[in-house]
């Protein structure tokens, strides 16, 4: 078989495109499970804040702990099944976000309960949008859309803000996860 240089390059370009699409698809498939999980968890969190506002901090603490544990278990399963597990750098980035959030919510900031929920939601959505620069447009769309809707809700949705956020934040994560499953 004789091939010209341009034919060989065209084949290599074709290969690169397919490999990129397969890896993107695999990343989206694993991310979809985590997004659906966290969507369900934050939905429970917001509803909990609405139902028992006195215990909002405890509700969120339990939700985060359950979410973190489930994320670790799922990530270990991905790795066991030969999939790419969660990169330790991503874990580090998430912990940094948490740390930044705690610093502002507990030390520097003076947030109302409504403001606190909006702060945490937009902080993590900022993280998703940032991640999208490397991992795919879907994360950018998720991050920016939920942030925009959070601003709308914070400013204009009256006393129903927690339930609104359950739909927007929780629902947004789950919808994005379902879309990624099909991508």
């Amino acid at each position: 078989m004789t091939l010209t240089s341009s034919q060989a390059q065209a084949s290599l370009d074709d290969i690169e495109q397919i490999v990129r699409r397969v890896k993107q698809s695999a990343l989206y498939r694993n991310a979809s499970i985590l997004l659906i999980l966290w969507g369900a968890i934050v939905t429970v969190g917001y509803v909990g804040c609405e139902v028992v506002p006195r215990y909002a901090a405890t509700v969120w603490l339990i939700c985060q702990a359950v979410g973190l544990l489930a994320t670790i278990v799922l990530s270990a399963r991905f790795a066991r099944d030969g999939e790419d597990g969660i990169d330790v750098r991503i874990v580090g980035a998430v912990l940094l976000f948490f740390g930044f959030g705690l610093l502002w919510s507990q030390v520097f900031g003076q947030f109302s309960p409504r403001g606190l929920n909006a702060f945490w939601a937009t902080l993590f959505m900022f993280g998703y949008a940032l991640a999208g620069i490397w991992f795919g447009r879907a994360f950018i769309i998720l991050g920016l859309t939920v942030t925009a809707l959070t601003v709308v809700g914070y400013l204009w949705v009256g006393t129903w803000f927690n339930l609104y956020m359950a739909v927007v934040d929780g629902g947004g994560l789950m919808l994005c996860g379902l879309w990624m499953r099909r991508a």
């Binding site: 290969i15 397919i18 490999v19 397969v22 890896k23 695999a26 099944d81 030969g82 999939e83």
Partner: peptide, 10 residues
């Protein structure tokens, strides 16, 4: 290309 893009254990 597609099949070898995934790790052998997948």
């Amino acid at each position: 290309a597609a099949l070898t893009a995934l790790p052998p254990k997948s």
